[in-house]
Design a protein around this nucleic acid. Structure first.
Lengths: 167, 167
DNA sequence: CTAAACTTTCAATAATTATTGAAAAATAAA
DNA sequence: TTTATTTTTCAATAATTATTGAAAGTTTAG
């Protein structure tokens, strides 16, 4: 398989996975592109490769920076900004998980907690509280799983590759 | 807080969480409604409570059944179908995780594997393969985390509540 | 069988979300 | 300064996704 064909396929695959996880397609594609690029890319490079508008590039690159998985980089002799993606993909996974946990799971936990205030003098009220408490348990548990994933073996990838190389 | 108000708030919260995870809002709301209902609901009950059309109810209930988290139930003396949601929420989480793993993560792993066939005689090709192999490692690892979550303590919730009740 | 009760389908339409592109704002060079 | 270059914003528009509702299809009762 030719390299560019492979890169393309990868960018597309990643983009389509992203859409089913509530991340927009372009954002995922921009990230994928930066990830497989051997050098920093400018907004124009991205526009050209992915055939998207300047505004779109700007918005999505900014979002990626916001998520902490892409950084600006300055190239000597160039005025415009260039971008690179963090190449440690475990780090990437952790960042994304951390962000989503904060933005989505934690607010739900807060609502569930708040709802515990419901009147439970009736039988139905009691049952509802039971469902809520089940939900809280599971959400908390999921939160915990993610928490552990985030904190887990800081250098898992590194040690993994050291192993691979040594072999 | 009044019971119906609380139930409503919960249905809305769950619905909005769902949209950011690529599950459609109505599907999540229907599920939430069934979850907090003390008795099986008919298509009409759902239509009325959520103010949505018959077709919409049908499609989403069917999808929920497809995911294995809602079941049909027959009510004596009634001709139409009624629906109930599985009340074991850990089971629900496991089902959803299992489905998504199968539908989304596994196909990506297959594509990544396929892309390993890329020509790697050039330096750039080698670097790309490195990125691919990183991605595979992480995706496999995530797959593993989910796998373990699915298989984990079949009766975690149950034992948890037994503990709570005993206390 | 036929009629009534109920479920499913799907083209039309609405609602939501993403993208463009040009104008405004910001930044750096001359 | 002023001018050129680059980035950001955002209203308009396009693309995607969800929803409706009525017609067609099924099932059950009589």
């Amino acid at each position: 398989m030719e390299l560019n064909e492979a890169k393309n396929k990868y960018i597309q695959t990643w983009g389509s996975l992203a859409t089913s996880w509530g991340i927009n397609k372009t954002m995922a594609q921009v990230h994928a592109l930066l990830l497989v690029s051997t050098k920093p890319l400018s907004a124009e490079d991205i526009m050209e490769t992915l055939q998207i508008s300047r505004g779109n590039v700007n918005m999505n690159v900014r979002a990626l920076i916001d998520w902490g998985i892409v950084q600006k980089e300055f190239v000597v002799g160039e005025r415009k900004e260039f971008f690179v993606a963090d190449k440690d993909i475990w780090e990437l996974f952790k960042q994304i998980t951390k962000e989503r946990k904060k933005r989505e799971i934690e607010p739900v936990l807060r609502v569930l907690e708040d709802l515990q205030q419901v009147d439970d003098t009736t039988e139905e009220g009691k049952q509802f509280k039971k469902v809520l408490s089940d939900l809280s348990s599971v959400t908390t548990k999921v939160n915990g799983i993610l928490e552990r994933a985030i904190k887990a073996d800081e250098h898992w990838l590194l040690s993994n590759f050291t192993k691979m190389i040594k072999k």
